[in-house]
Design a binder for these strands. Structure first.
Length: 301
DNA sequence: TCCAATTGAGGCCCCGATCG
DNA sequence: CGATCGGGGCCTCAATTGGA
């Protein structure tokens, strides 16, 4: 690579100012120095990055693409520095935790709060993914710990029981759906859906089951959380399929919660880690506390 | 003529190689 | 292992170019 981060910073400064001289001033350099750097950058990339004109400079299409990449790169660098901070401050421990929608929105927040009480210095990068992606990520060491709703085993992973949950159907009280028996997924597909926002792992999960029936979900609205889903279903906007654990007592007065008559409605959550993962006290502590929380909840129930 | 970009010359500093 | 030297990179300054 015949250019460096300084070149990219200078390039962005010039673009932001729309003027090479002011860009140079912002970087505490002479305009000639900036001109030279940008010329070298253009030579290295083999394409002009700036249109020079009377008023200053503007990006070429290639310059716009480079600027986007450069900005993303600097954002990533900022993130990297932020992530390194705990280490430089003498705080060892950062755990990457991937969990499915169900866990992220129900049990996990309370259980993590307990973990943080015991380990306030540990940082957790929590990401919501679907269970298949989580298994792959833990197996590939991209995640330290996963929480999945898959019963399939994986030869490189160890599993611990977490929580038992199930998917239920939320329908308005006025819905024509028979509320005296479990509902088949096929019946739900006749109604418009109220779903979590795009990207939520549960959406892909439901879409794949609809596709297996040769159908698709008629999604009337995407909303940011389960509270909004409950409100919209109660007001008659459509039906939804959610984990039982996210439905609150007060919701049950405003809408009907029906069992889903599908084998995949059972959502028995499990914690997974790599069997051969190197020793990591904080990861082991996280798993221990999650398992204990789950056991305590089962006993209380 | 003005203003912004570019070019060329020269200086400074860093780094690697060499030598005692 | 420290001192010295030379090359390369990067900088600034001054002059030049080019377009409106």
């Amino acid at each position: 690579m015949r250019y460096d981060l300084v070149d990219l910073r200078v390039f962005l400064a010039v673009l932001d100012e729309g003027n090479l001289s002011r860009g140079a001033q912002r970087c505490n350099l002479a305009p000639s120095s900036v001109s030279q750097r940008i010329r070298q950058l253009e030579d290295a990339l083999g394409t002009p990055l700036l249109e020079r004109n009377r008023e200053g400079v503007s990006p070429t299409p290639a310059g716009t693409v480079l600027a986007n990449y450069a900005r993303k790169s600097f954002e990533l660098l900022e993130q990297m520095h932020a992530d390194m901070l705990p280490f430089s401050a003498g705080m060892p421990g950062r755990i990457t935790l991937f969990a499915n929608t169900n866990a992220v929105n129900s049990f996990l927040p309370d259980d993590l709060a307990i973990f943080f009480k015991h380990h306030p210095s540990v940082r957790i990068a929590l990401e919501e993914k679907n269970s298949h992606d989580i298994l792959a990520a833990v197996a590939d060491r991209r995640a330290d710990v996963g929480i999945v709703a898959l019963q399939a085993n994986h030869k490189e992973l160890a599993f611990f029981p977490y929580r038992d949950d199930e998917l239920v159907v939320l329908v308005p009280l006025s819905s024509p759906i028979n509320k005296d028996r479990p509902v088949r997924f096929e019946e739900c597909l006749r109604e418009p859906f109220v779903n979590l926002q795009r990207g939520a792992a549960i959406n892909a999960f439901l879409l794949s089951h609809a596709a297996a029936l040769g159908a698709t979900l008629d999604i009337r609205v995407h909303v940011p959380g389960y509270r909004a889903i409950a409100h919209l279903v109660a007001s008659g906007a459509g039906v939804s399929i959610v984990p039982r654990s996210v439905v609150e007592k007060e919701d049950e007065k405003r809408l009907a919660m029906l069992p889903l008559a599908e084998p995949w409605a059972e959502r028995n959550l499990r914690i997974c880690v790599r069997q051969d993962a190197p020793a990591n006290h904080h990861r082991d502590e996280l798993v221990r506390i999650l398992v204990e929380c789950a056991a305590a909840a089962t006993t209380a129930a």
